[in-house]
């Protein structure tokens, strides 16, 4: 059974602050990334792509983890708010996984001389991307709220469980085939100012995520209310 009594996703007091906060955080992070952080001694300015690439990747993983939690929440309680959170987070996750892959390619070409390399982390991210595109496709082809939510929840849970297994298997495969491990963004040798910039970037992206999530959840809730509301109106009119 679906209940309409639901908690708001993000407490109302914080909500209005999210938009200005993410704008300010984005400006600060951009300034730090472009001006304040030192130029990389080896790679040059191209290394600054990292400040987009790494936070996007963090956000993608965070978003899919939220999809997982929300999917479990839906199967557990059948509250529509969980389904709204799941779809919102999945869309944002796909967006930022795409951004991660594109930024990674842009960074890889001048640094390694190739757009793409078959490295475990890249491969896992690519598989994850395809998996959640499939998730959104499954959603778009299902019609009614309850069934769509249940089916997507199953797909959302399977996808998250699958990510570490994919990573493990391709890491094993690479170890076996002794492919060169080229990808070492950051590492212990990261300059203090670079690290600070990266942290601010991650924080900025996370605030942006919260803002986008809240907005998208509201949209989905409005859509759900329209369907559920029309049900109740018709019922009242017929009674």
């Amino acid at each position: 059974m679906i209940t309409t009594a639901f908690p708001r996703t993000i407490p109302m007091r914080i909500r209005p602050a999210l938009a200005p906060a993410s704008v300010v955080a984005a400006l600060v992070a951009t300034a730090m990334a472009l001006v304040w952080a030192p130029t990389d001694a080896v790679q040059g300015d191209v290394q600054r792509v990292m400040y987009v690439h790494v936070p996007s990747a963090w956000l993608a993983y965070l978003a899919f983890l939220v999809v997982f939690v929300a999917s479990v929440g839906w199967l557990w309680s059948k509250r529509p708010v969980f389904d709204a959170i799941a779809v919102a987070s999945a869309e944002i996750g796909v967006l930022f996984t795409g951004l991660t892959l594109i930024a990674g390619s842009i960074w890889a070409k001048p640094t390694w001389g190739v757009w793409w390399t078959w490295e475990p982390r890249l491969l896992t991210t690519a598989v994850m991307f395809v998996m959640y595109v499939g998730y959104l496709l499954l959603r778009s082809l299902s019609l009614d709220l309850e069934r769509r939510a249940t089916r997507s929840a199953v797909a959302g849970i399977v996808a998250v469980v699958n990510v570490p297994i994919v990573h493990l298997s391709v890491t094993w495969m690479n170890a076996l085939h002794q492919l060169p491990s080229v990808l070492r963004p950051g590492g212990p040798a990261l300059d203090d100012r670079m690290l600070a910039t990266l942290i601010v970037g991650v924080v900025a992206f996370t605030i942006l995520y919260a803002w986008m999530l809240a907005a998208r959840v509201d949209l989905e809730r409005a859509r759900q209310d329209r369907v559920l509301g029309s049900l109740l109106l018709k019922r009242a009119a017929g009674a």
Binding site: L143, D144, L231, R235, G238
Partner: peptide, 13 residues
């Protein structure tokens, strides 16, 4: 019991 298929309501309470 309320049942809907897509936007169509089949059972209204």
């Amino acid at each position: 019991a309320v049942v809907a298929l897509g936007d169509r309501v089949i059972l209204r309470g």
